[in-house]
Design a protein around this nucleic acid. Structure first.
Length: 563
RNA sequence: GCGCCUGUAGCUCAGUAGGAUAGAGCAUCGGACUUCUAAUCCGGUUGUCGCAGGUUCGAUUCCUGCCAGGCGCGCCA
């Protein structure tokens, strides 16, 4: 788990201390403990602390205090690393590092630049992240936007931690949906053809209601000039395909504008065209996981904890969506992906157990499949919720939100809460240019530093490299606090990637920005009469800027040079 | 009825692979602009971590039961 420079050094020191205690016969260590550090809540508890002694007490049959003393005595020998080591009841070991150790962080950030935070925790994993996958029957709404932001951030996090990641969009283009879409457009075409221009009249229950249907109808009539005949029922499928192409084109356009690009768009119909569905079901039938009952075909998902078995082929001969999903996920594994991550709306959570059962049926371990559930977004304006009703087609589109608040604010807001909790998206707040707005606050930290460098250049100062400055000039508590914050970043990234929780990065950035603003306000950086101090501070500022930029990049938010 | 998620300060939310006196932003009150961006900063106030048990040296975190809210429970997609 330890990925940062400091924690790597401290972990190996602790490991060494335990090993020595063992060879000296002071500790038995029949089970080797996991070496975990916390950042203490209070400064007087040191830079890092570990509860390892408390965990060992039972196995060693000694008090945590005694064990902590033994470990601490060995750690104290490492005078390069530790300034001092304290043991505090009931058995905490609190570590305070030499200031020089913290300065190494600045060297590391300068050396790694945009790669600072990267690691190899997911090395050799080939991961497929499927997200958005909205049906091409209407424009993307804000909920899709949140899923898009989350999926993309997960992709960035996982590839930053060493995985080979593919972003994929699955298009449901089989079944009744496209036909329903076709019927919806057809009705508007017929209306318009009959000279009825009241496009607000509701369509029958079950059809798509939005304004975009009328627009597509108009486009259809333009490309299929009338005069020959009025389109009828038989044209629904053709019109459906026509509409799907337009809608999907617009979806891709919205996503491009939202700064999200997919490596692959996977169309459901190819699973049927290429016999993948049939092949998957045959294979499962050979293993006796698929059986026939009541004229339908079932997958025995209850074998793996699902409430009941699930139909894959209906009595009327049609396959269910689940059948496509089985084939699709088998196909994902067959393409060489070790790990599959699906980002879904939380309203689909009931579908997860049968998916997990299916993964077992296909012969894979369930830890190779994860679903990240993304909860609803409610828009708030002037303190009041914005009315949204999918039924009446009155949803707010992703495009509208992007147009109103901008891509950066939208992405940051979608990612600043844990994705499995509902999100209140305050449109007024997202547009505000003040510290109340977290996106602004973080971006401003970056811009502020950029502006500082501009000013420095105007005064003939370039930002020096770490090796050229006297780092001991950085003696203020706020400076050390900033460096410690920067040192945390690699762990934030690896934890965020491990737990599939990008919001941790958003929180971290707000904390880092707060430390920066506070420091910047209190202490002047450019001081003509103190060139050594100025140089050291510029180096620190550049490190902060690098980390802010890197963190924003994980969220897909820009880091402006000026605001 | 069954299942999943959620319940932490007035509001919006972090924190929880068990650890020390539970945090942030907003709101509110009071301060700071001869300054590299005051687009900012500093300080004060705020808690039965839904309730009740259990496991543990130690529980907001794990287990059980309840309460409240959301979502889901088709040979729909």
């Amino acid at each position: 788990m330890s990925e940062g420079l400091i924690s790597t050094a401290v972990t190996s020191a602790l490991h060494e201390a335990l090993r020595k205690a063992q060879t000296d016969g002071q500790l038995r260590l029949e089970v080797w403990p996991s070496l975990v550090f916390d950042i203490p809540k209070r400064a007087e508890w040191g830079d890092l602390s570990t509860t390892v002694a408390m965990g060992l007490a039972k196995g060693e049959k000694r008090s945590p205090r005694e064990i902590a003393d033994v470990i601490a005595s060995h750690l104290q020998g490492d005078t390069d690393l530790f300034d001092h080591v304290d043991v505090v009841p009931p058995g905490y070991i609190n570590l305070t590092l030499k200031r020089d150790q913290w300065f190494r962080v600045l060297t590391e950030i300068e050396r790694q630049g945009a790669s600072y935070g990267a690691s190899r925790v997911h090395e050799d994993q080939k991961i497929l992240i499927e997200f958005v996958s909205a049906n091409p029957t209407g424009p993307l709404h804000v909920g899709h936007g949140r899923g898009a932001a989350v999926g993309d951030a997960l992709a960035r996090l996982l590839s930053l931690t060493g995985a080979e990641v593919s972003r994929e969009y699955y298009v449901n283009d089989v079944g009744t949906q496209i036909e329903t879409l076709g019927k919806s457009v057809l009705m508007r075409v017929q209306q318009q053809d009959a000279g009825d221009h009241d496009q607000n009249a509701a369509l029958p229950e079950g059809l798509y209601q939005g304004q975009y249907i009328s627009a597509i109808a108009a486009a259809f009539m333009e490309s299929h000039p009338s005069g020959t005949r009025t389109p009828g029922e038989g044209d629904a499928v053709e019109i459906g395909r026509f509409a799907k192409d337009i809608i999907f084109h617009d979806i891709r356009e919205d996503l491009r504008m939202f700064n999200i690009n997919f490596d692959e768009v996977f169309e459901e119909h190819t699973l049927y065209d290429d016999g993948v569905v049939q092949g998957a079901l045959d294979a499962l039938r050979a293993k006796e996981y698929v059986y026939t009952a009541d004229d339908a075909d079932w997958l025995a998902t209850s074998r793996w904890g699902d409430d009941k078995d699930r139909v894959v082929k209906r009595a009327n001969g049609q396959y269910t969506y689940f059948a496509s999903d089985i084939a699709y996920h088998m196909h994902k594994f067959n393409r060489g992906f070790q790990r599959l991550i699906n980002v879904w709306g939380a309203d689909h959570h009931g579908y997860v157990p049968r998916m997990i059962a299916m993964i077992h049926a296909l012969g894979y371990s369930e830890d190779r499949f994860q679903v990240s559930l993304v909860q609803l977004v409610s828009l708030v304006r002037s303190g009041k919720p914005v009315a949204m009703s999918t039924r009446a087609g009155e949803f707010v589109t992703l495009r509208e939100v992007m147009d109103e608040v901008g891509v950066d604010a939208a992405r940051f807001f979608f990612l600043m809460r844990r994705s499995d909790t509902p999100l209140d998206f305050d449109l007024d707040l997202a547009k505000r240019n003040s510290n109340e707005n977290p996106v602004f606050y973080v971006q401003y930290a970056h811009a502020r530093i950029a502006s500082l460098f501009k000013m420095a250049r105007e005064q003939g100062m370039d930002c020096p490299s770490v090796s050229e400055v006297t780092l001991t000039e950085l003696g203020l508590p706020e400076e050390l606090a900033l460096i410690k914050k920067l040192a945390e970043y690699p762990e934030i990234i690896s934890e965020s990637a491990r737990s599939l929780e990008p919001h941790r990065v958003a929180y971290y950035l707000q904390e880092l920005a707060a430390s920066l603003h506070s420091y910047y306000y209190k202490h002047r950086i450019l001081q003509a009469d103190a060139p050594e101090l100025t140089s050291a501070r510029l180096v620190l500022m550049r490190a902060v800027q690098t980390v802010v930029r890197n963190g924003l990049a994980v969220l897909g938010v820009s880091a402006p040079e000026a605001m």
